[in-house]
Amino acid sequence: MSFHIEGVVSALKAARGTLSRTADKSGRVLDLPSPRHIETAIAGLTSALFPRRVGGARADSNGALDYFVGHTLSQALDGLQAQVVRELAFTASLAADGIVDTEQTSRSIVQEFAERLPGILEVLYSDVRAAYDGDPSAKSLDEVLLSYPGIKAVVHHRLAHALYKLDLPIIARIVAEHAHSATGIDIHPGAEIGGSFFIDHGTGVVIGETAVIGERVRLYQAVTLGAKRFSVDDNGALVKGLPRHPIVQDDVVIYAGATILGRVTIGRGSVIGGNVWLTRSVPPGSNIVQAQARSDVFDSGAGI
């Protein structure tokens, strides 16, 4: 049985008109990168980075493994380049001159991204090791890589951050939001994060765009590294790009539910306790905990 949908189609068309797509100066509606195709490319990149553990490649010989990595990586980069072409064309159409050789430029950008992958993999190894060393329940590095949501989020962040640094903010944000939806961990691709980074449990973690995190930092669930306030210009519009998120130095531990807001610095080796609300800098070696709750007994309405 077919449905009577002609009226629904017309109503959807009318509704779409209330949220107009971005168009260039000639009025042509612009194509945007496809989240579905970007997710496919990232899955391929992850398989190429971890061919046996994630990609499912057999370990028959180094030659076979190299072939798998080369083939998988080539397909992923081809798919990524197609989306880079879309983002470059979209950005160029909104610029003053609107001129860019999207094919050549996209190839150059994706080549540079590919050349950064070995360095990204080295840092990811340190992240996996930090998760294994920092969690007494972890039985193996393989378990950590395959099943920990914090590692999934960090893998995506390392790739998204590289794309962000190559001036592909739309694609980078799509990569980050894919991990966010899968793990509940929200890391803006602009955040600078050092190696041996471990997010334990992870649900509800938020790390803002201009946050800077040092080496060997550990976060627990529901930690927020956010902005305290947003600057506006004379017209009341938000001023974008200003440093507004915390700096977390090396060897810091931040426990569950802590909220740290603004461009404050958490000194090296500090420990921030659970559910702490912090809007000021603290020196190295600090141990910040909640104030102790006071318990009093009131008789006959004496507490009123």
Rank of each mutant, 00 (worst) to 15 (best):
F113W: 02
S93L: 03
R218L: 06
R229L: 12
S147Q: 12
L219I: 05
S108Y: 09
P33V: 00
A15Q: 14
G226N: 03
T203I: 09
N62F: 15
V264Q: 04
R58M: 14
V206C: 14
G7V: 06
G236I: 05
G70F: 05
R294E: 07
V282I: 03
T91W: 10
Q75S: 00
T183F: 09
V217S: 01
R86E: 12
R129K: 15
Q221C: 01
Q81H: 00
V297T: 15
A15L: 15
V282S: 07
G257Q: 13
V289C: 09
A14N: 10
G257D: 01
V205G: 09
Y67G: 02
E115I: 00
E192M: 10
G55F: 06
A258K: 06
R268V: 03
R28V: 12
I207K: 11
V29T: 14
I174K: 08
V217P: 01
E6L: 03
I288E: 08
A64Y: 13
V248E: 03
A15G: 01
V100C: 12
A153K: 07
I304C: 06
R244T: 08
P283W: 01
G119Y: 13
A76C: 08
V29A: 13
D250R: 02
S286L: 10
E6G: 09
D24C: 08
R173K: 04
M1F: 10
H188W: 08
Q81D: 15
T105D: 02
D66M: 15
R129N: 08
V212F: 13
S140T: 12
V84K: 01
D31L: 06
L32C: 01
V289W: 15
S231A: 11
I272A: 10
S231M: 07
Q290A: 10
H37F: 02
S74T: 10
I185V: 14
L19G: 02
H4Y: 11
A57L: 00
G134S: 03
L146A: 07
D127S: 08
P283H: 02
Y255K: 01
P283R: 00
V232K: 08
Y132G: 05
T18E: 09
G273W: 14
L124E: 11
T279R: 13
L94M: 14
D97H: 05
G267A: 02
S286P: 08
L88P: 03
D97S: 05
A92K: 08
K25S: 11
I199E: 07
T46K: 07
R16Q: 09
A89W: 02
R173A: 04
A114N: 03
D135L: 07
Y164M: 11
Y132R: 06
H201A: 14
L73R: 01
P33N: 14
S295M: 04
G56W: 02
L163S: 06
S196N: 09
L242E: 13
K13L: 03
T18K: 12
P189M: 12
A48M: 12
E87I: 00
